[in-house]
């Protein structure tokens, strides 16, 4: 499992999640996003193109970082969710809470 942080030409911070986002590693993602937020970044895309699975605690950390970003005046987009992951968002109604794009490029350009 790795979280890769990069910056798009328009200044959007992209965090790619490779593998699983689960109870065992969720705080690592939270720490990376909050660190970027504290450094002054405000526009974030979380790219799940290479993510196999997100458990309920992973969903919870997404809710948590979303609130932190919003409270700091920033914005968050999610991208690259496969069919299974989208279903998890729909079942929990979190699809109503997040802005979800098909691809990371699309999400980056949407800011």
């Amino acid at each position: 499992m790795t979280f890769t942080v990069s910056t798009a030409p328009n200044g959007v911070t992209i965090v790619s999640v490779d593998g699983q986002l689960i109870v065992a590693n969720r705080n690592e993602l939270k720490d990376k996003v909050l660190k970027a937020l504290e450094a002054g970044e405000s526009k974030f895309v979380l790219d799940f193109l290479s993510t196999e699975y997100i458990d309920s605690s992973g969903l919870g950390v997404l809710v948590s970082v979303s609130k932190k970003i919003r409270e700091a005046g920033g914005e968050l987009r999610l991208a690259g969710l496969n069919e299974d992951l989208r279903m998890l968002f729909e079942l929990t109604k979190l699809d109503t809470l997040f802005k979800i794009c098909d691809k990371a490029d699309e999400a980056v350009q949407s800011f």
Partner: peptide, 22 residues
């Protein structure tokens, strides 16, 4: 129910819902 608007932004409490649904 974590889908209720009052609880939607809670960071925990979705595991049982997922089990029920699946």
């Amino acid at each position: 129910d974590p889908r209720h608007p009052d609880y939607l932004e809670r960071s925990e409490g979705r595991g049982l819902l997922l089990i029920k649904e699946l």
